[in-house]
Write a protein that binds this DNA or RNA. Structure first.
Lengths: 359, 359
DNA sequence: GAATCCAGATGAAGCGCTTCAATTTAGCAA
DNA sequence: TTGCTAAATTGAAGCGCTTCATCTGGATTC
């Protein structure tokens, strides 16, 4: 246990370990990487020397010599949105079971940062990259792929078919949300907020539209907004409640939980009852969705699974020489809670404090 | 602009660039790293060759040869707590201005993961590590420091003086929170929730106690809880509201915003008015603190600044041979909002949707 | 015109590891 | 004992880069 301080400055190398253990360099490497290829005696000598010197393998040297690394890079859009947190966790859990470490980079919704992190992982010759791209040019994807880097897109793929991707069926999510409101008897629906340029927003809106069309006797009004934050929801709610009673929507769906939260609070502040007067449903199942005044109904994308599946696709691409690119589209799930069901939708907290994700 | 596909499999190396540019290996390296040391003609030839080959430097080889890397690793406790998100952003912003990339690792409140990520950064010979440790053994810190790795502790230091750290004055934060309630005329205070083993919880409680002592004519009741989640807040609120009126607290402070959110919602559900009957204040200024029914008063630690300062300490340790370890303790700030001030505390959203952090 | 200088360019050494061909050792049957 | 195979070990080559001592040639000086 007596690791010694960096004596002489230089950290101990495998060569030092070999010397101390009285074996060759190659044997040390074998002992450390494929112990079964080495006699018990050598193994033990090596391990003892490693311990005594406090040897730490140099992963730069390793990946240079081996020509590859075992870490996987994940470039995230926005660490502040719990969907991405879930994706990161799912990826991390899955990567870990196969002995890969997951390093994160947060582009913070900034295109230049996003590209720069892609390059960093590219330069580091990581085993592969998981990438949740902004709704923008996917040139970075081409760039790193040209260098032979493996990459899996998550959450958005801009229609690309030439690499693996894990997506969420946004249209269906919007459909479910609207359908849910319709089934509760709501007829004057409002799709509240979101910039139409966002692929996800547009798809969700399309889905909602489809549900309303199918129903026949209902309407869908659309009010868009520049961003997806809660104050946009407040503004929209303020606007619609100022109308004559027969033009106030009785069901509001929003492409983000944040907007929905704003809507709910503003409605309540203006004396409307949720869901009796207006039912509200959000999207994303953000972790705060149960911290609002009344727990929010929402559409959940299983971020954890998205991350895990993305890792699986990546691993197949790494290990399977006959790998073929696949696009996985996961179905989101409806999670009705109080904001559409009323008190009966009150979730029962589980022992670990997380909420059951089943509808 | 014609980068070619990985011809023959191998990615182009500096050697290839040198050959194509008609200069030596060393010149390519110089051209890329210290362009001012190279003639304009060579520089241009090199750049052209780089472009043509689609050359990407191999950072493993670089850091092996140079003996150091320029990336900084940040091992985070919990990516799901917005304090850590802020820390990551602050660190990232600051690191970027000095040309360092910031890679994140999320230990997800798991000691083994935390240690494993420390080792990964250690093995990668990163320029330095920023570390928000769990409230547990700091052996990992010793381990990596023995290997000569630089490390700065953030948010918790377990009393260590032998490395740089950026902390928040938890005791003072608790003091401010309690003081705020007292100044609003509240006298029967409740400190709601939190496991006493957490250093931060204990300190905040101590601060609250000090404020109450100073005031003289007030009391502080303490109810602890196993975790820091909102349902604990609901339970506690349910319990205290069942009491005879003169034993119901008129001011509640909690060591986490999540608990405070639970408290607020349960109080409201039981017909109590916040803040008229009970004023509530949380801690952390989590990003959802303004998404709850009424915006929450809270104590904010400036995570962004913590991250930025941690990077600065690290950079000094890297660059300054006469570096001395320093512990920076930042003062948290009180952010009164509706849950203590009533409607007048309603925040005015700024243009970018974030709330002003000034009290 | 010789001596001096210096920006630039060069080439080789070496960073710490993996890997592979070559070699040694052990294991065992005849 | 011999011969043969399998297992274990060795040593060297080389991954792609930085760096440093060395060299080159043109400009500057007297």
């Amino acid at each position: 246990m007596t690791s010694q301080t960096a004596d002489g400055g230089r950290a101990p190398s495998m060569q030092d370990v070999a010397r101390l253990a009285g074996v060759s360099l190659g044997t040390v490497s074998h002992a450390l990487n494929k112990p079964e290829k080495v006699s018990a005696r050598s193994l033990q000598k090596v391990l003892a020397a490693v311990e005594q010197l406090g040897f730490v393998p140099n992963s730069a040297a390793r990946s240079l010599a081996a020509g590859s690394s075992s870490t996987v890079g994940l470039v995230l859009t926005d660490i502040d949105n719990s969907l991405f947190v879930d994706i990161a966790r799912g990826a991390e859990d899955e990567a870990r079971t196969s002995g890969h470490a997951l390093l994160l980079a947060n582009s913070d919704v900034d295109f230049k940062r996003q590209e720069s992190y892609l390059d960093i992982f590219d330069e580091a010759r990581v085993a592969g990259i998981l990438f949740t791209p902004l709704n923008a040019s996917l040139e970075g994807v081409d760039r790193v792929r040209r260098h032979g880097r493996r990459i899996v897109l998550v959450n958005y793929a801009g229609g690309r078919q030439d690499c693996c991707a894990v997506l969420s069926d946004e249209e269906y999510g919007g459909y479910m949300a609207a359908r849910h409101l319709l089934e509760l008897g709501r007829r004057r629906l409002l799709f509240a907020g979101g910039p139409e340029e966002f692929h996800a927003v547009k798809e969700r809106r399309n889905g909602a539209l489809r549900a309303v069309m199918e129903a026949g006797n209902a309407t869908l009004e659309i009010i868009s907004s520049r961003r997806l934050k809660s104050d946009e929801g407040r503004k929209i709610a303020a606007e619609v409640t100022g109308r004559p009673a027969d033009r106030v929507p009785d069901g509001i769906l929003s492409p983000s939980d944040r907007i929905a939260a704003g809507v709910i609070h503003e409605l309540m502040a203006r004396g409307l009852r949720v869901p009796e007067d207006v039912a509200v449903i959000g999207y994303d199942n953000n972790h705060f969705a149960t911290e609002v005044a009344i727990s929010m109904s929402t559409v959940a994308q299983d971020g954890h699974k998205m991350g895990a599946e993305a890792i699986n696709l990546l691993l197949d691409e790494i290990r399977n020489p006959r790998h073929e690119h696949r696009i996985l589209t996961l179905k989101p799930r409806l999670i009705p809670r109080e904001s559409t069901l009323g008190p009966s939708g009150r979730p029962v907290p589980e022992e670990d404090g997380r909420l059951p994700l089943e509808a």
